[in-house]
Design a protein around this nucleic acid. Structure first.
Lengths: 169, 169
DNA sequence: TAGGATATGTTATGTTATAACATTGTCAAG
DNA sequence: CTTGACAATGTTATAACATAACATATCCTA
């Protein structure tokens, strides 16, 4: 089991046929949950699907709306599903955006490194060994026992840099 | 003008006489604002002082309480002061905690790297060139133009690791 | 000292997240 | 197949974090 977007050391949420990703992510999630003996219930599956459906990070309340167009579900419903998916490493939370994205490498626990475009909100997840090692070394020196890393870089993606002064895409 | 906590490539908010830091931070802030022709008003000065006063990251509403024990000031008051201090690089915002800390290297613009203890909330700010370079290289490769970085590592500090199973300090 | 710019006060509300408890679903042991 | 324990979800309320919009005050300069 490798990456959801085949062989890459990074993954950009734009400019590819995304529909396959959703299916693949759901299939992987099922395998992983089965192997671990945890339950990917209908609700959790649906939330994971919604997280993957867009090409962009999505907030909990936006998920909530999409979950029940009528507006029935309450916040804890979606937050509990998100908590489960986070625990299982199936999604990431971007704390600088208060938003969630699907993890392209579920089953392979890792701290994501994210490039977030301030203009179009498009996202790239990196997996840069050099960054991880540098952080690892620094953390070791300090005697600190890390449990969770957040590396989020905000800026402008190449596409938005070209169309410099224009309106946001 | 160097670090507020003299010569160090990192700064830990614990285990040192902190009272001097507050004074030094305020003095630096005054110099910097004067040099830039911006106004360190009484309110802004007071908020900066409160941010520095504790040894831990502090939230906006906690600041608000300390600002006016009677409870008069409203949120925008403190958020505006925080925005100013952030703009001037006098404090950092920790997005994984929704909290603020004084910047030990004001006047020397930089993206902080933080080690945050989940047990005692104690904080260490790193300045690790290797991490910065690794990120820089990775970001360059992607064609991305970075504007703001967030590197926050949650875990347990050396002190809390010793007192493993015990109650939080 | 008048007038514009900057800063702060005030009221209301938006956005994100969780606490606490009730109900329902699942599954295995008897 | 039913009972009981645990896991998951529903429901209501509220906590925690943040900003919009407009009024007032303060500061500085021409």
């Amino acid at each position: 089991m490798k990456n959801i977007q085949a062989a890459a050391d990074f993954m950009t949420w734009d400019e590819h046929d995304h529909s396959g990703c959703v299916e693949t992510a759901l299939r992987f999630a099922e395998e992983i949950c089965l192997a671990r003996g945890v339950r990917l219930t209908e609700l959790r599956r649906r939330v994971l699907e919604l997280v993957w459906s867009g090409h962009k990070p999505i907030g909990a309340y936006a998920l909530l709306e999409q979950l029940q167009p009528g507006g029935r579900a309450a916040p804890p419903t979606v937050y509990r599903a998100l908590d489960f998916l986070l625990e299982q490493g199936l999604i990431h939370r971007l704390s600088s955006l208060n938003a969630y994205v699907g993890c392209p490498r579920p089953g392979e626990p890792h701290a994501g490194q994210f490039l977030i475009c301030e203009s179009c909100q498009n996202l790239t997840e990196l997996r840069d060994g050099a960054i991880e090692e540098a952080i690892e070394r620094s953390v070791q020196r300090s005697g600190f026992a890390p449990s969770r890393q957040t590396v989020e870089i905000l800026g402008r993606c190449p596409q938005c840099r070209e169309t410099a002064g224009e309106e946001q895409r």
